[in-house]
């Protein structure tokens, strides 16, 4: 089937402002948007620039705005996008080129929440054991692949990029509620900031955007309650 791809193009070294490039691709209904983008890059216009690595919804490299919604290009099927498919780079991020955005501010916020196990006790011979129940407590937030679909779908983040954003809070949640970790208080203190969890206005865009079906707003709510209870 033939589909028209409308792609937001921008090369900061050449273009004064972004423009729409239109390409017709011939795809199977079960092809993905990523396959259509590959077809353009490999056979029509090699200058089209995009990020992708695993191409199977695990690495989180190819998050972009597809028909107005944040999604992974490798997870959206062409049969679901209609006759015209519009693809744009993630919002409120500096565009490096075409669909590639500067992820550094996003990762800086990720690092700010200390996203690693903090435990001062001597590690045991093999591993730090955990009961299935204790593991279940933060299971949802372990699914995050740091694709930035949630953070760049958040109106609070569009309005104010000092906001630490849903992805960083999800990553903090993953360790705050891990009973092997001892850094919860430190992380809660970091998130108890006017630009921390309190910028969240429970808009729920992040929940719709997450390609891993994480209940992001719920996780943020649990962190808010933990701050009220623990600090």
């Amino acid at each position: 089937m033939k589909v028209t791809m409308r792609i937001r193009r921008f090369n900061p070294e050449k273009d004064k402002k972004p423009w729409w490039g239109e390409y017709t691709v011939d795809v199977e209904p079960t092809d993905r948007v990523l396959d259509a983008l590959h077809q353009i890059k490999w056979y029509q216009d090699g200058t089209l620039t995009l990020r992708r690595s695993c191409a199977h919804g695990i690495c989180g490299s190819d998050a972009m705005v597809i028909n107005g919604r944040n999604a992974l290009a490798c997870k959206v099927l062409m049969r679901d996008v209609g006759k015209v498919c519009q693809v744009e780079p993630l919002r409120s991020m500096r565009i490096v080129k075409d669909l590639v955005v500067d992820m550094e501010p996003f990762f800086a916020k990720y690092r700010a929440v200390l996203p690693y196990l903090i435990n001062e006790e001597e590690p045991p011979e093999k591993e730090r054991l955990q009961s299935p129940e204790a593991r279940e407590r933060f299971d949802d937030t372990t699914k995050c692949i740091l694709c930035a679909a949630c953070t760049t779908s958040c109106p609070s983040y569009w309005a104010n990029q000092d906001y630490i954003g849903p992805a960083a809070i999800v990553q903090a949640h993953r360790f705050i509620f891990d009973d092997r970790d001892q850094g919860a208080l430190e992380r809660l203190q970091i998130l108890d900031d006017r630009d921390g969890v309190w910028r969240c206005r429970t808009v729920f865009n992040c929940v719709q955007a997450c390609p891993r079906d994480i209940d992001v707003t719920k996780a943020i709510g649990e962190v808010k309650l933990a701050i009220l209870e623990e600090l």
């Binding site: 970091i190 900031d193 921390g196 309190w198």
Partner: peptide, 13 residues
């Protein structure tokens, strides 16, 4: 090398 940008105690809570 990560400067603490977040974590100022706040009234927003």
């Amino acid at each position: 090398n990560v400067k603490r940008k977040y974590g100022a105690p706040s009234f927003e809570r």
